[in-house]
């Protein structure tokens, strides 16, 4: 297993390390990488979903995840020095979910109001404002 060619990107070094994984839908997972394959399918253990809103964050325990590779944007080993909670303020799951909902509602409301006004003028909501970059 240690015979893969040098200079080749591989996730084998990341095995059993604590990783931050960014998914295509923007969610971030933190967990221990237990297994990986050629598609970058990931098996994560002790996973939490971390939600950031401004300077605050909260963790939702998720357990074991198998993430299909195509949904992975990037991942990296958590730098113990960098992870320190002092950078951000940890809040409860309930609080962070409420904050996240506020943030999302504001976005949706803004988009809806623009869409309504454009519709009245017989125009279509610009599809490019919709996040479909990964499709």
């Amino acid at each position: 297993m240690n015979s893969f060619p040098p200079r080749t990107a591989t996730l084998l070094y990341e095995l059993d390390k604590k990783l931050m994984v960014l998914l295509r839908d923007g969610r971030t997972l933190i967990g221990y990488l237990r297994s990986v394959d050629q598609y970058a399918n990931l098996l994560l253990q002790q996973t939490v979903e971390r939600i950031h809103v401004g300077k605050k964050f909260g963790d939702i325990p998720r357990g074991v995840f198998l993430v299909r590779g195509e949904n992975v944007v990037l991942l990296g080993e958590i730098d113990a020095l960098k992870e320190a909670d002092q950078m951000f303020e940890r809040v409860s799951i309930g609080d962070i979910l409420a904050l996240q909902k506020q943030e999302q509602d504001a976005k949706i409301e803004k988009a809806k109001s623009i869409e309504r006004s454009l519709k009245r003028r017989g125009m279509r909501f610009p599809p490019d404002l919709v996040q479909d970059d990964f499709l």
Partner: peptide, 12 residues
């Protein structure tokens, strides 16, 4: 090229 919608006039 980006389309921006003016928040007051709603012009593209």
């Amino acid at each position: 090229t980006t389309i921006e919608v003016d928040e007051e006039t709603f012009e593209e």
